[in-house]
Write a protein that binds this DNA or RNA. Structure first.
Lengths: 107, 107
DNA sequence: CTCGTGTATTATGATATTTTTATATTCAGC
DNA sequence: GCTGAATATAAAAATATCATAATACACGAG
């Protein structure tokens, strides 16, 4: 990966690196959802959700399709769902390390 | 994933979501490196690298081993290297979409 | 046309991240 | 004990992100 690609990749990752946005991706893995369904299910305000969806859309992580007065959101790239598996494993290890301070971080 | 896990996962992703930190992970995929080797290879200041390494270490993405006056960094979790494959594919698609504005984002 | 529902935008303050500069620490070799 | 190389920390300014509140827009039903 060259430097310029790393800049773009960092932006894509940054778009995922937020609890609500991760939640959106996770929920959409199960299939399309309305904006209202998303903010209801994830427990945030409508405004908040609208802004987060825009960020995800910008990085082409989700696509948005208009149908009448509503918008349906879906995943653009199911490939990234692998990340949740990695993350689950990592969280187990991470919490494990945290307990035992088995890592050479000084805190 | 429950809400609390998503908070932690977001922090881990945030730690990866930076050009230099992505670079570090990519370089370390090839094997251990000294701090000096890292900031030389990635073209940033020593201070910058030290701070970025701390962030990666905090999230247990890398481990740091002291040997004399130097420190050797290595990957904690090669599992996340999958991410680079996903990302490569995504960048191809992303740039493609960008050209054709084939996504329903309104900008 | 107007009303209600679904969604987007804007503004704002609080907080966090980024980057640089300067200084400190640590340790091996002499 | 000094010196120099490797690394860490602190402080500060610029910028970005987060979250909320208020308002605007779009559109179908009646």
């Amino acid at each position: 990966m060259v430097a310029e690609e790393r800049n773009i990749a960092a932006d894509v990752l940054k778009a995922m690196a937020h609890p609500i946005r991760l939640g959106v991706i996770e929920v959409l893995a199960d299939g399309e959802r309305t904006v209202t369904e998303l903010y209801t299910e994830l427990g945030c305000s409508q405004s908040m959700m609208s802004q987060q969806l825009k960020i995800l859309c910008h990085q082409r992580l989700i696509s948005i399709r208009k149908e009448g007065t509503q918008k349906y959101c879906g995943l653009c790239n199911r490939d990234f769902l692998k990340l949740f598996d990695c993350m689950h494993t990592h969280l187990r290890k991470f919490l494990h390390f945290k307990d035992q301070s088995a890592c050479f971080c000084d805190d």
